[in-house]
Write a protein that binds this DNA or RNA. Structure first.
Lengths: 214, 214
DNA sequence: TGATTTATGTACCGCTTCGTATAAATAAGC
DNA sequence: GCTTATTTATACGAAGCGGTACATAAATCA
């Protein structure tokens, strides 16, 4: 049933002339606020009232905009992924040597995992994987994709470094990438247990030492 | 208020002559059943009805035996720790070379993380760390202790191997232990996302290769 | 046998949960 | 100004939640 072509607003442009009452929220901001709550407390322990309070939207508006709690969670997770991808993308510099590059990445990760008004929050991908929501096939697929993206990101780093001669030819970029991801995961979990940043940085330094040696 | 010394049953012995109606459950078994549910669904998504159904105890009995939901969770977690500690303790053999020792440990971990009727469950310590229940100081302390115990277990392994000359003198057992724990954590998370065992084993093999080289 | 002790089984409580029905508000189109 | 479209706001409802009161059952003790 093809809808009649509605006049679309110019992509980057001025707000379109929509017909009814204008909405009182910005979807991106609302998703970001929802993320704060889900990230801190997890899927099951977060109520629609919590989300309503955090976003400033009342329940029917939330429902109308994002669907039910599960749908909202998925959109929230995608928004997290976009944010994380952007931050890592900014940090990436092809000409930077491996060790400072890795340390910069882990620094950003620690910033994310330790931030949050209600204490350190860890990694939202890890939170989602350990949530009961992972039994939803869609959500599980998102998690698998998130884990894979991180692995490939690190693998690219190691491969570039290897081509540049910073890494022994015998080193396996894939194996090192898995170790680099494992280090991400362990600091995310420890952050959530409120292990202090200094200790996590020491752990990262040690892990990077092993990884850059091969 | 010192209680009058009640005659204690002989430690390992015959069931004592308790005075009232005998209970219809065995505490250890009940805790084990409760663990199954908490482990699968997490703290918040597990209801007292779920626990009641799993243990066969009705709610008042549950409450009388283990306290409220949080208390029960703590006792459940301690029972998990005891079980995990026992399994790792059995696996440990002081005279075994480092690489097969590590592979044996990871094999046991994978057995635990991939088991469960409702699909792979991951590591209960990781689940607890990412649960909102970690904001309870008692539970957080248990998690910190659990993480530390795993680190120390691996550190001992590496230290023994180093003294035996299997590991370069320049290697840092503490750093390697953190990497070994990180590998535990990453396979726990990936198991939960239903990554197949073969892939997790490949990851472990690669990680062990890096670790035994120092 | 009757009192006492301990555990179970049923039923209930007040509260929260997710979701929605309905009415009011605010815009554009005619 | 009236209609139509879209969103917000209030209020409701059925179900589920954690926890407990109360009566019953099953054992020991005297």
């Amino acid at each position: 049933m093809p809808e009649p072509a509605r006049p679309q607003p110019p992509a980057g442009g001025i707000p379109p002339k929509r017909r009814g009452r204008p909405r009182a929220y910005e979807p991106d901001v609302a998703l970001s606020r929802a993320l704060d709550v889900f990230w801190k407390d997890g899927f099951a322990a977060t109520s629609l009232d919590d989300l309503s309070a955090a976003t400033g939207m009342n329940r029917p508006s939330l429902y109308g905009a994002f669907g039910d709690k599960r749908e909202l969670y998925k959109k929230t997770y995608e928004s997290y992924r976009n944010r994380a991808r952007a931050r890592m993308g900014e940090a990436f510099a092809a000409d930077m040597p491996l060790r400072p590059m890795l340390l910069r990445i882990y620094g950003i990760a620690l910033d994310m995992y330790l931030s949050g008004e209600g204490g350190p929050r860890g990694c939202f991908t890890v939170m989602t994987a350990t949530s009961e929501a992972v039994f939803d096939p869609d959500i599980r697929a998102l998690v698998v994709s998130g884990l894979g993206e991180m692995d490939r990101f690190f693998a690219r780093l190691f491969k570039i470094a290897q081509e540049r001669g910073e890494l022994a030819a015998s080193a396996d970029p894939q194996v090192l990438a898995n170790l680099a991801s494992a280090t991400i995961h362990t600091i995310a979990i420890r952050a959530r247990a409120q292990i202090p940043r200094a200790e996590l940085e020491a752990l990262v330094n040690g892990a990077v030492d092993v990884m850059v040696r091969g």
